[in-house]
Design a protein around this nucleic acid. Sequence first.
DNA 1: TAAATTTGCGCAAACGTTCCCGTTTTCTTT
DNA 2: AAAGAAAACGGGAACGTTTGCGCAAATTTA
Lengths: 344, 344
Amino acid sequence: MKFEATTIKDIAKVLQLSTSTVSRALKDSHEISKETKKRVQDCAAAMHYKPNPMAVGLKSRKTRSIGILVSEIANPFFSQVIDGIESIAHNKGYHIVIAQTRESFDRELADLQFLASRSIDGLLVSVSLETKEFSHFRQFQNKGLPTVFFDRTSDDIDSHAVMLDNFKGTYDATCHLLEQGYKNIAAICSSPFLSTTTERLSGYHKALEEKGIKSNAEDHLYCTLPGQETKNIENWLEKMLATTAPPDAILCMTDKLTIECMRTLKRRAIKVPDEIGVAGFLNMDFAELFDPPLTVIKQPAFEMGKVATELLLQLIESKRPVVQFEKKMLFPELVIRASSKKLY
Amino acid sequence: MKFEATTIKDIAKVLQLSTSTVSRALKDSHEISKETKKRVQDCAAAMHYKPNPMAVGLKSRKTRSIGILVSEIANPFFSQVIDGIESIAHNKGYHIVIAQTRESFDRELADLQFLASRSIDGLLVSVSLETKEFSHFRQFQNKGLPTVFFDRTSDDIDSHAVMLDNFKGTYDATCHLLEQGYKNIAAICSSPFLSTTTERLSGYHKALEEKGIKSNAEDHLYCTLPGQETKNIENWLEKMLATTAPPDAILCMTDKLTIECMRTLKRRAIKVPDEIGVAGFLNMDFAELFDPPLTVIKQPAFEMGKVATELLLQLIESKRPVVQFEKKMLFPELVIRASSKKLY
DNA sequence: TAAATTTGCGCAAACGTTCCCGTTTTCTTT
DNA sequence: AAAGAAAACGGGAACGTTTGCGCAAATTTA
C-alpha cells in the first residue's frame, strides 16, 4: 500500500517555479515577492501540502519528536505523567514516542538504543527497578542526546531532573500516623537502589527518630523483584504478625505496593484501621471509594510530566551546550482518610 | 547540541569501499563476498553504526512506527490497551507514537493530520466522544494509510476493527441484576453516537425485554459532554430519586461513569447495595477493594491492544491492497461482587 | 581455447528538503 | 547616464540510504 502525497516539487511544477523558491515562499522568506508567496501558499493549501518529516529531519537532524522511557505505561502514575508530557509536547509541535522497560535493565538498554538512534530529539526517562548505574544514559548524553530524568533519578548524573519531594511525602505521612497514636509503623518499599526508595525511607526514619523511636530494619519489606509484590507482602505479613510486637500500621511506598498491601489485608480479613492502620502512595483520584477510604500520598504526576517536558524542550532548543543543570522538586499532597485513623 | 553518529560513508571510507558495497554487505546481500561482508559487519559493530531512520524512511517511505489516537492516555482502559499495543509493536521493531484527542473532534482532526503526514506506517484509532462521522479517516485510508479501529468503532467504515462484545457485556450484567431481584434498573451511558453506547444499550434493553420489562428512556442518562459527568450524574440522580418509582439499581456503561456514579452515591450517603444496586464497566484489577466491592464488566484491554496491532501490522506488511476487512470481537467478563447483591 | 556465465564491486540517481551560491532584472545613487 | 545595490528567483549540492545498471575479473561451459 502506498501513500502518495504532494511534495514541493509538485507545487513547483504546477506554478512553474523552482523548488528553492517554493521552499522559501513557504517559509515566508524575505527574498520572495509578496505575490509569489501568496501563489505558492495558496497552491500548497489547495494541494494539501505537508512537509515530509523525514526529509526535513534528514536535513535538519531534528525529528520534532521526544522519547519517553518508563517502566510501565499502564501504571496510573506513569500514564498521568505521559498525559502531562503529551500536553506540552503537542503544543510545541512535538510527537511523543514511548517505550517501556517492564522494570528490566536489559530492556532499558535495548530501548535506549532503539530510541536514541537519532529518531528522537530528546529523552525523558524514569529508570527501571533493576537500574543501579547510569553509564548508558551518560554515554548518550555525551553524544549530545538531551536527557531529563523524572521521578526515579540519581544524584550522580549531570542532567536536568524533576522529582518529588519524597522525603516530605513519607515524613508527613509518618508524622500523621504517629499523631494518630500508632507506635509500631512498618514500611513496605521498592528496590533500595531507587532514589525514590532511599528518599522515602529517610523521611520515614526521620519522623520516627524525632519521636525517639528507633526503627529496626527487620520491619521493612523490600520488594525488589517486579511482579512478586503479592507473594512478598503475603509472606512478610505472616512473619510480622507472628512476632511479639506486630506492627499496628503500615506505610506503603509505591502505588502498586499500597494496592497489593490492601489486597492482602483484605484477603486475610484484617480490618483497617481497626487492627492495622494503612497509609501509602497512591495516585488515583478515587481513593475515597476504597474500603476503607485510603489515606494517600498523592504525587502531582501530570505536573511532573509538564515540568520535565518544559525542561527537555529548553535543552533541545538551546543554542549552546547546557552545563548547568536544574533539579526541580515537586510537592506531594497528604490526603488523610479513614484508613489511618486510629480507633480508641 | 548535535549528535554525531557514524554513517555508511564513514565505514566505506575506513574500509576503502563504496557506500553501495557497505550497504549491501550490511543487508547480507548475496552479491558481496563472504570476507567483505565480515569486514564490513565487524567494522560497523566496532563503530556502533546504526542506520539513520530518517534516511531509510525517506527512501523506503516507511518509518517503522505506528500511530495511536485515543481520547485519554491516562484513562486506565486506554493505557492498558496501549500497553498491549506496545508489547506487540516492540517485538516487531515498531515505534509507537501517541496523540490524544481529549474527546474533542477538532483535536481528532488535527492529530490525524499531525500523525498522518507520513511519519507513521499505520494508525490505531479509538474515536472521540464528539465524533459522529468518519469521513476524515476514510480520506486518509483511501490515500493508503492502513487504519485499524478499536473499542469505539462504526459499522459504516471499511476497515479492520477490534471491539468488545458490548451487547453481551450489558446483557449479562442486566440479567444478573434482574436475577438479584432488582426491578427498576436505570442506565448511565456515554454519547449515543458512540458504537459502544448503542451496543451496550441494546444489550441492556434486550435483557429487560426478555423479562417483559419495558424501559423508559427517561431513566437513561446520556453524558455527552466530556468532563461534565459528575454534574450530570448529580442532577440526574436528584431527579430520579424524586420520582414516584426511583431506580433500585444503576448500570454504568463506562469506566468513568462507574467511578463518578459511586462517588456521587457516596457523597449523598446512599448505601450500596442496600438502597441501590450498582454494576458497571470498570477495568481495574482492584475493584474488590472498593466499598462495597464492585460488580464490574471487565474488558480484555491488553488483549485488545495486541489484536489490533497484529491486524494493523498485517495490513502494513501486506503486498497488495486489502479489501476484505475483519471485525474481531473480544469478550467481556462479568465479575460479580457485593455492589449488586440485593439484600432482602 | 574462445565464449558464456557468474561473482564482486562501483557509479550514480533517487527519496523530499534546505540553503549556499549564482544570475537576471529593476531600482537607487551620484 | 553609468555604476552600484537591491530584489526576486533558479541551479545544484547535500543530508544518509537504497538500488538498477554497468563493468571487470574469475569461473564455468561448450
